[in-house]
């Protein structure tokens, strides 16, 4: 493994990830995912609406990958923020473990 070409892989990964962040709000299917769709099919309606009304244990700052009042642009931004956060955390964690070794 050469360090230089791994950095190429790193930059290529970032470019692809950010490209996906920009495209996802426009291209991703709005249909429910497998679990939600299964839930809609197998759970009785009254119980389903009860489950849907339950609040999550913790409210998140950008629910459903959106920023309030910002529409599609907010969605792009939310996913991009998440992508960069994951990148930074994994890079940081990798560096910490690497130093200890």
């Amino acid at each position: 493994m050469s360090g230089k070409s791994n950095m190429k892989f790193f930059y290529l990964g970032i470019v692809i990830a950010l490209l996906l962040s920009v495209l996802a709000p426009f291209l991703a299917s709005p249909d429910p995912d497998g679990l939600e769709s299964a839930a809609g099919g197998v759970i009785e309606e009254s119980k389903m609406s009860e489950l849907e009304e339950m609040e999550p244990a913790l409210s998140s700052p950008m629910p459903d990958y959106s920023i309030e009042g910002m529409g599609k642009g907010g969605e792009v931004m939310a996913i991009a923020i998440g992508t960069i956060a994951v990148l930074a955390i994994s890079f940081g964690l990798g560096k910490v473990f690497n130093k200890k070794a």
Binding site: F9, L12, G13, A24, A28, I79, G94, K95, N98
Partner: peptide, 25 residues
């Protein structure tokens, strides 16, 4: 993990986060 593998891990993690937002019908 070493200096060579950290960037690969980080790039894959970011890519996977982003691709999970891309729901396919």
């Amino acid at each position: 993990l070493d200096e060579m593998k950290v960037p690969v891990l980080a790039a894959l993690a970011a890519g996977i986060f982003a691709i999970q937002a891309m729901n396919i019908p």
